[in-house]
């Protein structure tokens, strides 16, 4: 699979997810392809996080399939992970490591090398100048979120699955993140984003799906 030659596509086919007793959604089908931004909306408990975790391959859906380039992601596993960047509620950074260490280890585990210099540059770009060398447990919530988001600038993944990426960010960071996401989409990537606060995610190729409309 050579990126660029075929347009990336993610298909969701009759997906059904259950949490405990509750069916969060069923028969959910849609497709996203390269250059598209999918904005997921819905009230609390409508299953946004569950859907994103299923899209990332963390969660086994009750039924239905998620296909990447036509193949089920459960079968692809690591091959799919190569193209994916998931950012959940947790920042996924270690409090005992510095921002630079966190970023570089995440890069190595994601399968590419990130030299010290680039790591510093990215962290400066995301507004953490002067905090690169501190254990991240001493940073504020918003700064920790920025460390996590720095992966977006370093990573070359095609599919971004971002769960509430704007939480804890200040106005400047929200603006920056929006730019980063739009740039990614403009470059032919896929972004799937949930927000519950009204952050403008409007761009050329933005689609909105609203979960949990109670039509039953």
């Amino acid at each position: 699979m050579t990126p660029g030659s075929t347009s990336p596509s993610l298909q969701i086919d009759r997906l059904c997810c259950v949490r405990g007793d509750r069916t969060l959604f069923h028969d959910l089908s849609f497709a996203v392809s390269g250059g598209e931004l999918l904005h997921l909306k819905g009230h609390n408990g409508s299953g946004k996080t569950t859907l994103l975790r299923a899209l990332a391959g963390l969660l086994l859906p009750e039924s239905g399939e998620i296909r990447w380039q036509g193949e089920n992601i459960r079968a692809l596993r690591e091959e799919y992970a190569r193209h994916l960047l998931y950012l959940g509620h947790h920042n996924g950074i270690k409090g005992d490591l510095t921002a630079v260490e966190n970023l570089r280890i995440a890069a190595i585990l994601d399968g590419y090398a990130l030299d010290e210099e680039t790591a510093w540059r990215i962290l400066a770009e995301i507004g953490l100048r002067g905090h690169e060398d501190l254990p991240t447990k001493h940073l504020s919530q918003g700064q920790k979120r920025r460390v996590a988001l720095a992966r977006l600038l370093a990573n070359r993944a095609t599919v971004w699955v971002l769960d509430e990426p704007f939480t804890a960010l200040d106005v400047a960071a929200v603006q920056l993140l929006q730019d980063v996401i739009h740039r990614h989409v403009a470059d032919g990537g896929i972004a799937i984003v949930t927000t519950h606060q009204e952050v403008a995610m409007i761009g050329a190729n933005t689609r909105t799906i609203e979960l949990g409309r109670r039509d039953a």
């Binding site: 990332a56 690591e78 992970a81 998931y86 959940g88 996924g92």
Partner: peptide, 19 residues
Amino acid sequence: HRDGTLEQMLLTPQPVSVL
């Protein structure tokens, strides 16, 4: 598990058993 690095580990292209 608490800080989310575990879920990131499961999403890397590396075989989880090696990690």
